[in-house]
């Protein structure tokens, strides 16, 4: 059987040669490093690799934004697809211009990312494996076993390491505002490290109904703050309260924007 890498290369070749797509976004190994790359010719595909995992959604957005028409292919894992769906809901990408090659992650990869849904809706390459059940995480269980004060103390000590690099915001596919409140003096004091707790809480509630738990923020954090643990906990609440999960369907609206329409405030 072919490796997923070989199968993906063949899919990309088909999109370039048979479907005449101008480019397909994937990962390229070159000079011993791996990074995002748009493949324009089937001749270069021996350099296409699948690891390490980079979030593709923001790269797609940058490319589509910079070229008003034309389609783009993209090798997309489950988290990439969910990020793109969430970005489409926010008017950030036009899904009709993207052709996704769906790549399912392995069990080991799902475990590494603590991913609940390690596959896209349509799988072109790879086998669907079950995700990690939400909460099936030693760190989460340990936290939930403690009282509120102890949890607050835990988060405060984690956030105290923050060097305010803004990496978590920069890599997040659903953190989309042009003017970011985290750059406003009234919320986040300039020149002060670590930032006060609101820095992290503002980000947490801005993405509370959009976070697709891709883990990009945590892997960009130079000081290893377990950001997705926090966000996974708030996603679990969203699911419990509203039976809603971001990133699944572009027509589904966030309950945080519709709840008051359905049940006006005075009736709550």
């Amino acid at each position: 059987m072919n490796t997923p890498e070989v199968e993906i290369r063949e899919r990309v070749r088909q999109l370039l040669d048979d479907d005449r797509l101008p480019g397909v976004l994937g990962l390229r190994a070159e000079h011993g490093h791996v990074g995002p790359h748009v493949f324009n010719s089937a001749d270069d595909l021996t350099a296409l690799v699948l690891e390490p995992r980079y979030g593709m959604a923001l790269v797609c957005q940058a490319i589509l934004d910079g070229s008003p028409k034309g389609r783009l292919g993209v090798v997309a894992r489950g988290c990439d697809e969910r990020a793109l769906i969430e970005m489409a809901k926010l008017g950030q990408v036009d899904l009709a211009r993207l052709v996704l090659i769906g790549l399912a992650c392995s069990e080991q990869q799902a475990r590494e990312c603590m991913c609940t849904r390690p596959y896209p809706r349509r799988i072109d390459v790879g086998e669907k494996v079950a995700g990690v059940a939400p909460g099936d995480d030693a760190r989460v269980q340990q936290l939930l076993a403690q009282d509120v004060q102890a949890r607050l103390a835990f988060w405060q000590s984690e956030f105290n390491r923050c060097i305010k690099c803004y990496g978590c915001r920069n890599v997040c596919p659903v953190c989309i505002c042009d003017a970011c409140v985290l750059e406003e003096m009234c919320w986040v004091e300039r020149g002060k490290i670590p930032p006060e707790l609101p820095f992290h809480l503002i980000r947490a509630y801005h993405i509370a109904d959009k976070c697709i738990l891709c883990g990009a923020c945590e892997s960009a954090c130079p000081v290893d703050i377990p950001l997705t643990t926090l966000y996974a906990l708030s996603q679990a609440r969203l699911k419990e309260l509203f039976d809603y999960e971001p990133g699944l369907d572009v027509t589904q609206k966030s309950p945080l924007t519709t709840t008051l329409e359905e049940t006006p405030l005075h009736e709550l």
């Binding site: 011993g32 490093h33 990074g35 390490p52 980079y54 305010k164 690099c165 803004y166 960009a220 130079p222």
Partner: peptide, 12 residues
């Protein structure tokens, strides 16, 4: 992400 030193992280 493949840089041996910074491993996918940057400062501001």
């Amino acid at each position: 992400k493949t840089h041996p030193l910074s491993q996918g992280r940057l400062c501001i």
